[in-house]
Design a protein around this nucleic acid. Structure first.
Length: 296
DNA sequence: ATCCTATCCTGGCTGC
DNA sequence: TGCAGCCAGGATAGGA
């Protein structure tokens, strides 16, 4: 699903096709796709504006808009599960899942397509309201091993739900959390309060290298949904070590990969390489084993 | 403060 | 071949 690497790929690939273009018209085919305002106000906000820049924050694609050379708000898009952005010819057939369309001044148009209808579009004069609660960007300087160690210890949460929490750290989703915890050798149910500095440092490095590797391969496409704006699948799914590998041998130790449900999310891990705790009490060992076997 | 569940959606898959 | 039922998940809301 579109997580940070997929959204970054979308932003990078549409950028050269929309920066400098003026939005000539806007059509919204499903009112609830627009959030934060009525569709008419949304369309008024974007039509006639020139796209000054395209960038990403967390899992949002942001188009900075300007009028007469002055900043004039932002067109913001969240792809959620199945959203896609394409820049194609005006007459392109976007199919029956087209939710919004923006004609540009060069004979092309920006298309927002979304099968499951979870994706959203905003016109925002100020991004603070939309982005105010987001945690740091995992690839920014603000996210370093010391910050992560302190932030983990300041909470008492299971690692998996905490890393999925966008107000803690912005941009990770189900796939990259599972891959990062495996790479760091940490159990998804381990308590953030008990993570030691060495583990936090490993987790920091794992998150950074996995995200960077996934961006280099234009994201992950394991089903029919995520495609780049050029229509191509990503390549990182070929490098999954735990995600979607239930029952297959761990690449490191050969033990079968487990799948449990944590916070409604399918969660994949190696029971041998990712022990529940470094100092297991017999009580917590039994509880963890029971939890795993119940989910099978 | 944290946890748990439901909600939004529908294509694709499983099993009969 | 058809069809019912389940599954996937990002974000949020409400209750425990």
């Amino acid at each position: 699903m579109p997580e940070l690497p997929e959204v970054e790929t979308v932003a990078r690939l549409i950028r050269p096709r929309v920066v400098g273009r003026t939005i000539r018209s806007g059509e919204v085919y499903r009112a609830r796709t627009v959030a934060g305002s009525k569709p008419a106000a949304f369309v008024r906000g974007v039509v006639g504006a020139r796209v000054a820049e395209v960038w990403r924050r967390a899992k949002y694609v942001v188009l900075d808009l300007e009028r007469d050379g002055e900043a004039a708000g932002h067109l913001v898009c969240h792809l959620r599960m199945t959203g896609r952005l394409h820049v194609e010819a005006d007459e392109w057939d976007a199919g029956k899942f087209l939710r919004a369309r923006f004609e540009l001044d060069d004979g092309r148009a920006l298309y927002f397509i979304d099968v499951r209808k979870f994706g959203k579009l905003w016109f925002a004069r100020d991004l603070a309201a939309l982005f105010g609660e987001l945690g740091p960007e995992p690839l920014s300087d603000a996210f370093d091993a010391d910050w992560l160690f302190d932030a983990l210890r300041a909470r008492k949460r299971q690692l998996k739900p905490l890393l999925l929490d966008q107000s803690f750290l912005a941009g990770l989703g189900n796939i990259y959390v599972d891959e990062s915890l495996f790479r760091a050798g940490l159990h998804p149910l381990a308590s953030s309060k008990r993570v030691d500095r060495e583990s936090a440092t490993r987790l920091h490095g794992a998150i950074r290298s996995i995200l960077a590797g996934a961006i280099a391969r234009e994201g992950s496409s394991f089903d029919t949904f995520y495609r780049t704006p050029e229509g191509n699948p990503g390549g990182f799914q070929n490098e999954f070590q735990v995600y979607a590998r239930e029952g297959e041998p761990c690449v490191r130790c050969g033990a079968p990969i487990s799948k449990i449900v944590v916070g409604q999310r399918g969660t994949h891990f190696c029971p041998r390489c990712q022990p529940r705790s470094t100092k297991l009490t017999s009580k917590s060992t039994r509880a963890a084993s029971a939890r795993v076997s119940r989910s099978r």
